[in-house]
Amino acid sequence: MTELRKARVATASLAGCFGCHMAILDMDERLIDLMGKVEIDRSPLTDFKKFTRRCDIGIIEGGCCNEENVHVLRDFRRNCDVLIALGQCAIMGGLPAMRNAIMHSDEPLRECLEEAFIDGRYIRNTTHNIPNDPALPLLLDEVYACSEVVEIDYNIPGCAPTGDVIYDTLIKLLAGKFHGFERDMIRFD
């Protein structure tokens, strides 16, 4: 006999805008029902910075734009049985990936930072330096989708996904009955 217990869920926001975490709250009163089935471990919602134990489901918002994102994502993959990419940024890079299209010169990152902090027409940067504090995570050459860094098990599309689609998917996953989305629930915006 396996002991019935609540599923442990962890969440993180990488290169995202926290909109997908807001969308989790869009489940509204269904959150009460959901909390009867899950407990939240590492997450901005609990403010736990580390995993207290292995989790069943990890929910990732946002892609990877810096080395800290990659570190967190790998940590989630190591500590979660099932990993879900939530929203377009986690699935395909999203808005931050706009910078990839301008990254075709020899030193794209340098050019990008110089325009942002030194050369840009509307810059008011009295130090004339690119921020370089050791506490700042280094930017990656490009923005990567989560599936380019680790294996992702499920993707919930949307920007942000609706509370409906998140609730529906989680409930079906917890019951072991998730077999893809209804066509009219798929949205990229």
Partner: peptide, 10 residues
């Protein structure tokens, strides 16, 4: 068309 063809995975 992506919606109709169930394009949800990267």
């Amino acid at each position: 068309m992506a919606y109709r063809l169930d394009m949800t995975e990267p």
